[in-house]
Design a binder for these strands. Structure first.
Length: 881
DNA sequence: AAAGGGACTTGGCAACAATTTG
DNA sequence: CAAATTGTTGCCAAGTCCCTTT
């Protein structure tokens, strides 16, 4: 029943409508949201420190998992395949920390990248050097689908590497052998084109198999069929289904249409969720109005709701009739139309500036400033304790903009002579004051604000009340660019109504301009876009700032779902794509060679595409914009990456690659300077255009989603083994961490980190002292002697040896727990798990896993994630990515 | 093909809120 | 109960990827 219960969870639906947000999803029975433990703390037998995840999963196994409520511990882990084991080195040894060196901060200690860091050496070298060909071919089949990502060497995931090795790197033998088979001749033919052909042939078969497979479920990834490339089942399968579709035009990422029958899913969907389908499909063709309407109906009824006891307020007001929050997504209609009716109240502006009158000093003397001048001075003063004060660029940009407001002949001429501390201190004391307010006062304030903002918080889209994401106009301030942004410190001026364009349904009232005497810049009625309002970014006028619906809205949910469906589809094409680019590593056409290598890197390392950037932006790169100096080849086949990626987060990694790739990189570098583009014949549009030939709608970023979700599922399958709830949660976190590392989602080490660690160490010391004492007492008790005196000099109670032994055991457990806590804390100090959870991991994987293992979903997803992923909550327990 | 406009997703962090600890 | 921690949310910067125009 757990399962069942789960399924029911749903959001509330219409009737109750209460508008407030509380949607709670709970499982009926247990629930208890409250005690969330911190995952980390628990004990677990299973995972010892070294869990090196090895991605390779075994076959997968058993299908039946679902439905089983009981434990089943044995399930997944069959013996580990031999392959795996080799790699599993003890990496656990602490990964050496410091992965990230953020530019700004820390200096460099970082070792290498998150991934492999220190330990690289040993194993790495080994691998690198000796390519192992071990991987058997057949084994291969089973895992064909694996991701490449595994950076080989990396510490943590070494296992992953297995795959890598096999497929991509090294083993010459392997590699070689493979390609030949399939490819045979046509190098140039796009895979896509090839697929179809084959598919036809096998269509019938494929269909079968596919369906069958589905049911059994779990296995999936193995796509056994993959076996020999030559068949490339996936491709075919798919193609068959879609063949027709594609032609029509494609580009739409969303797939096609009619396809309702995509091989795999078909089956399942029938069961219960039809919702899957609709979404993407309708896109194009569709639109069959008929169907559309139909679907709508269905979705409505579908929602079942379970109201938890806790939902108290549910019934409050019913203002507008229908706010349903069904988890079902409504179909999007073809042609780009995003909504039919749209109502909202516009945006809210920050309050006007209130002068404080605190005077800053110039050359030691107080200066009078107009409110406008003071406002800007305050923006700067408030940042006195930030890193920005160490950046010349920031100060210079600030001064240039401030000077415009001060006027040419103002007393204040040089920033160096300015002393903003009075304002800074005033600000600090204001902050303090606020902090000191009683909780009632704070609450009152909050309510006040809420009341004021409430009307802006919601929009009604196609009759459904949806939350608006950011309805507050950005207040003026100094631009805080990341990394070495050329524009940091510039004044971001105040936005006024006449900077703003409103988008709203026709025939509904246009939000009144909240500032008297002013008006909106423009009002549009464009239902092909989802934004409610936008204005030009004051820092870069050619860019825009949009107001969108919140992540929990069905409009966002729908596209989120489509994103994951597309990534899932990639699974069916990946093998063909890999074999195609593998072949192209040696192509004589340099463009092809670069595309092949770039695709390989994106596939294996989950790199971002890497669009070109302007000079007035921070200098960061992605795959297509890598510079020669960012990739250093170290014979025999290691590539050392070191560059600043998005948000100027450093990416450092050492990876053993397939030899042709290594050679190609060396060749791309030859004759160039360090600052030259590594891929000089490539850019993201060429790359994506190529990817699109391989799979409809495929772009570089899909690989990241695919890689992340695939890895999560794989890790969960591999690591989950019965045990306590806490153990399962720990497993999930380990899997999540793997993904975060692959995606290079970093965070800065909190300032209190070292303090926290030493505090824990102290605790361990204390416990150890206690432990020793117990041991002494135990020895004495056995001889019938009384315990020694405690530190405080007081005599202790006499305990039996058994009782003492219990105490000793308990203390040991405590120590172990703390040690484990230290380990995870250390491991996660630079890794951010949230980003992947929000953006890369198909929530259905998590939901299905929770259902299978009786883990309450609210242990994994917080309230906002539950709302964002409402569309995924009723997935079957047997779902596989 | 390159440039530019446009829309939407992805990201890290700081402020806040909720909990746990001492 | 205050202080310390940890979890959430808001903020807004920074990417990706289209699509249209030159």
């Amino acid at each position: 029943m757990a399962v069942e219960a789960f399924a029911k969870t749903n959001l509330m639906e219409d009737m109750d409508d209460d508008d407030d947000m509380p949607l709670v999803f709970k499982r009926s029975s247990t629930t208890s949201k409250q005690n969330q433990s911190n995952s980390s703390s628990q004990k677990q037998d299973g995972r010892s420190g070294r869990q090196v995840p090895d991605i390779r999963s075994p076959n997968g196994q058993s299908s039946s998992t679902h439905k089983v409520k009981t434990v089943t511990s044995s399930k997944a882990s069959p013996a580990v395949s031999p392959l795996t084991s080799p790699k599993a080195s003890p990496l656990s040894s602490r990964t050496s920390p410091a992965p990230n060196s953020r530019p700004s901060s820390s200096a460099g200690n970082q070792a290498k990248n998150v991934n492999q860091q220190s330990n690289v050496t040993p194993k790495e070298s080994k691998q690198a050097v000796e390519p192992k060909s071990e991987p058997n071919d057949e084994a291969e089949d089973s895992d064909d689908d694996k991701l490449l990502s595994s950076r080989v060497p990396s510490g943590l995931s070494k296992s992953t590497s297995v795959h890598a090795k096999k497929v991509l790197c090294t083993s010459t033998s392997v590699q070689k052998s493979r390609p030949p088979k399939k490819e045979d001749s046509d190098d140039e033919t796009p895979l896509a084109s090839r697929f179809p052909m084959k598919s036809n042939a096998g269509a019938s078969t494929s269909k079968f198999s596919s369906s069958e497979e589905v049911k059994p479920k779990i296995r999936q990834n193995g796509l056994p069929s993959a076996t020999v490339l030559s068949k490339r089942p996936p491709g075919e399968v798919k193609s068959a289904a879609q063949a027709s579709v594609k032609k029509p035009r494609l580009s739409d990422a969303s797939t096609p249409v009619s396809s309702k029958q995509p091989p795999f899913k078909t089956e399942k969907k029938t069961e219960d969720d039809d919702d899957d389908v609709p979404i993407s499909q309708r896109i194009k063709k569709a639109v069959d109005s008929a169907s559309a309407s139909a679907s709508k109906v269905s979705y409505v009824k579908k929602a079942t709701k379970v109201v938890s006891s806790s939902m108290k307020k549910t019934k409050k007001k019913l203002k507008k009739p229908k706010y349903s929050k069904s988890s079902k997504l409504q179909p999007s209609s073809g042609d780009g139309q995003k909504w039919t009716t749209l109502e909202h109240n516009g945006v809210i502006f920050p309050p006007p500036y209130k002068p404080h009158g605190v005077k800053m000093l110039y050359k030691g003397k107080p200066v009078d400033l107009t409110p406008e001048q003071e406002e800007v001075a305050t923006m700067y003063a408030v940042m006195l304790d930030t890193e920005y004060m160490t950046k010349e660029q920031f100060k210079e940009n600030f001064m240039n903009d401030w000077r415009k407001i001060l006027g040419k002949n103002h007393v204040i001429q040089k920033l160096e002579e300015c002393d903003f501390t009075p304002i800074y201190e005033w600000h600090q004391s204001e902050k303090e004051k606020k902090k000191q307010m009683s909780s009632e006062e704070k609450k009152a304030l909050r309510e006040e604000k809420l009341k004021q903002e409430e009307k802006y918080m919601w929009a009604i889209v196609d009759g459904v009340k949806e939350k608006v994401g950011n309805f507050r106009v950005e207040p003026p301030g100094l631009f805080r660019g990341r990394g070495e942004h050329p524009k940091m410190g510039k004044l971001k001026r105040r936005i006024r109504p006449n900077d703003i364009t409103i988008n709203i349904g026709k025939g509904v009232p246009v939000p009144e301009c909240p500032i008297p005497g002013q008006r909106w810049k423009e009002v549009r009625h464009d239902n092909t876009v989802t934004w409610l309002a936008f204005w030009n970014d004051p820092i870069n006028p050619r860019e825009f700032k949009y107001v969108f619906l919140a992540a929990s809205s069905s409009l966002k949910g729908q596209s989120d779902k489509e994103k994951y469906e597309k990534a899932r589809r990639l699974k069916d094409y990946i093998e063909g794509i890999r074999s195609a680019y593998t072949k192209d590593f040696a192509s004589k056409d340099p463009v092809k060679r670069q595309i092949a290598v770039a695709t390989y890197l994106i596939d294996k390392l989950a790199l971002r595409a890497g669009n070109e950037k302007d000079d007035d932006e921070a200098d960061t790169v992605g795959c297509c914009t890598l510079k020669v100096e960012n990739v250093e080849p170290v014979p025999p086949n290691i590539l050392k990456f070191d560059f600043l990626g998005k948000d100027s987060i450093r990416y450092q990694n050492e990876v053993a690659v397939y030899e042709p790739v290594f050679k190609a990189i060396q060749q791309f570098r030859s004759g160039k300077k360090g600052s030259d583009d590594l891929f000089d014949k490539l850019d993201t549009s060429k790359l994506n255009a190529h990817l699109k030939e391989l799979m409809p709608g495929l772009t570089a970023k899909v690989f990241r989603t695919y890689n992340a979700s695939f890895t999560l599922e794989q890790q969960l399958t591999k690591l989950t083994q019965g045990g306590e709830l806490a153990d399962k949660i720990a497993v999930y976190n380990v899997a999540n961490k793997e993904v975060a590392i692959i995606c290079n989602h970093q965070r800065t080490v909190s300032k209190s980190h070292s303090v926290q660690i030493s505090r824990l160490n102290n605790k361990i010391d204390e416990l150890k002292a206690i432990l020793e004492e117990f041991k002494v007492d135990l020895a004495r008790a056995k001889k019938g002697k009384p315990p020694v005196k405690g530190a405080d000099g007081k005599a202790k109670r006499n305990l039996t040896p058994q009782a003492l032994q219990i105490k000793i055991d308990q203390t040991n457990v405590k120590i172990d727990n703390i040690e484990r806590q230290i380990d995870t804390k250390e491991e996660l100090k630079t890794v951010a798990l949230g980003t992947s959870k929000i953006n890369y991991l198909d929530p259905r994987i998590t939901v299905a896993w929770c259902k299978r293992h009786e883990v309450p979903i609210e242990k994994m997803f917080n309230k906002s994630l539950l709302a964002k992923f409402a569309w995924a909550m009723d997935v079957e327990p047997s779902f596989t990515f």
